[in-house]
Every structure is written in structure tokens, then in C-alpha cells.
């Protein structure tokens, strides 16, 4: 019973991180029709900046205030997004998709090197945060409290992003722009501004994901690419451009990965790709996507 509960919590933990990354990827694609290959390294920027600021402040501040500094990772990724969209992506909207793919892939590589230049080849971490919370007992099972914190952040992000997209004025404009960009502009919506806001929001989510996972797995070179691959599996299953799809996809991948690590570690990734392949075969646009 304890093992089962631990496995479920582990799955939800993975799903939370995956949702934070994949929702941003999906949002950017949904609104701008751009597959942002650089998204993985915006997640990594979140991890690095959070580790760096917490490292700088760890001797000065109480540990509870260090938690607040996790936000710096999200904000740094958002700032990077707000600069990248107008500078590198906007000039390419009228060109074929290949140019955008090449550009975002190039940015993925460049960002990786920028992080290497700034923080060196060695991993950064701030395990003080996860250590500070210790373990708690959940229905008799002992479980790291920090992981529960991440699950809560993931759940709050899902609810918050859903409310933002479906309940607010900006959300309506965002969805209108994603469905018909020309008509949106003819109704007075400044599409350029919506694009930079959507891209920034997508990067903010990725950065938040990187920041909250950092106290557990550290900020490591290459983490962005690994995360990007799993995020793609999530959005292929859920449907690129769909927020509900990102949530369901993240849960599916989270649970299958946890099961895989326990029971079929050798073929864990292969099983995920197989699920993605089956979904593509049965529903090419993903579970929640629109063809």
C-alpha cells in the first residue's frame, strides 16, 4: 500500500514538472504556430537562475525566503522570452516553417552555450530547500515534503493557467488570436503584442518548472534537451496547442514513467514513444487536439 501511494505521488510529481514545461510549449504553438525547440533551455534557464540567486542569498536569508527566490528562475525565463520573440522570431513569421524550426533549434544550442559560459560545466543546486522541508507522512507513507510542494505548484499552475485562458479578457483575446490571427487584428487586437505576451507566458511556465525541479535534480547542462523530448511526447499525446491535452498528456507520461522506472527500466522511454506513436496513429492531432 505504501509503495503504491509513493508511486502515485512520484507520478504526480513528474506530471507537475512535465505540465509546467509542456503547457508553455503548447501555448506558444497554439497561439503562434511555432514549435519552439528552444523551450527546453528556457526551462534550464529557470533552473540555473534559481540555483544561482538562491546560492548567492543562502548565507544571508532564512530558508523560507529562499523559497520565494524560486520565482527568479521563472522571471528570468520570462524575460528571455520577452527578448527572444521580437528579436529572433518576429522577422520569420512570413517565412516557411523550416526557418522557425532552424531558428529555435539554433537558439536551443546558443542558450546551452550561454549557460555554460555563465555558470561553467558543473551542476548547480540548492538542496537546502528540499532538505529544509524534510519528510512528511501521507496516509502512513513517508514522502519528501518538497515533492508535495512541487505537486501543489503544478496543480495551482494548471488551475491558474486554465482560469487565465478561459476566464479573463486577455485569455479571450489569446484564443481569438490563436484561432484566426487576421480576424483578430481586424477586430482591433494588437496581434504583435499578444504574440510577445503569449511567448513570455510560455517561457515563464517553463522557467517555473526548471526552478522548482532544481532543488531535487540540480541545474545541469543538457537538462533542457532531455526535458524538451519528454515535453514533445506529452504534447503529441495530448495534442499540440491544447492546455487540457498538456495536462492529460503530462499525467499519462508521469504515470507511465514511474511505472517504467520500477518495472521496465530498460525500455521506459521506448514505451513512451510507443504510446505517442499509437496516439498519432489513432488520433493524429492528439487526444485533445483539433485536426
Amino acid at each position: 500500500m505504501d509503495t503504491l501511494l509513493t508511486q502515485i505521488l512520484n507520478s504526480l510529481f513528474y506530471a507537475s514538472i512535465l505540465f509546467l514545461i509542456a503547457s508553455g510549449l503548447s501555448l506558444v504553438y497554439g497561439v503562434m504556430r511555432i514549435v519552439n525547440m528552444a523551450h527546453g533551455n528556457l526551462y534550464a534557464i529557470g533552473a540555473y537562475v534559481a540555483a544561482w540567486t538562491i546560492g548567492l542569498a543562502s548565507t544571508e536569508l532564512h530558508v523560507s525566503l529562499l523559497f520565494v527566490l524560486l520565482v527568479t528562475g521563472a522571471l528570468a525565463a520570462a524575460l528571455a522570452g520577452a527578448l527572444i520573440e521580437p528579436a529572433f522570431l518576429r522577422p520569420l513569421y512570413r517565412r516557411a516553417e523550416e526557418y522557425q524550426l532552424l531558428m529555435t533549434f539554433g537558439l536551443l544550442l546558443v542558450l546551452e552555450d550561454v549557460m555554460r559560459l555563465l555558470w561553467g560545466p558543473h551542476p548547480l543546486t540548492a538542496s537546502a530547500l528540499s532538505d529544509a522541508l524534510g519528510s512528511i507522512s501521507v496516509l502512513g507513507a513517508t514522502y519528501p515534503a518538497y515533492n508535495i510542494f512541487v505537486i501543489v505548484i503544478g496543480a495551482l499552475a494548471a488551475v491558474g493557467l486554465g482560469a487565465f485562458v478561459y476566464r479573463t479578457r486577455f485569455g479571450v483575446m489569446l484564443r481569438a488570436t490563436s484561432q484566426d490571427m487576421r480576424m483578430a487584428s481586424a477586430l482591433g487586437i494588437n496581434v504583435k503584442r499578444v504574440y510577445v505576451q503569449a511567448f513570455t507566458l510560455g517561457c515563464l511556465m517553463a522557467g517555473l518548472g526548471g526552478a522548482v525541479v532544481m532543488p531535487i535534480s540540480g541545474a545541469v547542462l543538457g537538462m533542457g534537451v532531455d526535458a524538451l523530448i519528454l515535453a514533445f511526447v506529452v504534447v503529441v499525446i495530448g495534442g499540440l496547442g491544447s492546455l487540457e491535452g498538456a495536462l492529460v498528456g503530462a499525467l499519462i507520461v508521469g504515470f507511465v514513467r514511474t511505472l517504467g522506472i520500477t518495472y521496465f527500466a530498460e525500455v521506459e522511454l521506448a514505451v513512451l514513444y510507443l504510446i505517442a506513436a499509437v496516439v498519432l496513429f489513432v488520433r493524429p492531432a492528439g487526444l485533445f487536439g483539433r485536426a
Partner: peptide, 10 residues
């Protein structure tokens, strides 16, 4: 050019 996924109100 009606946005298909938005309600008429939206």
C-alpha cells in the same frame, strides 16, 4: 471569420 471555439458572447 467567427472564432469557432469562442462563444458568440466572447
Amino acid at each position: 471569420g467567427i472564432f469557432p471555439d469562442l462563444t458568440v458572447a466572447e
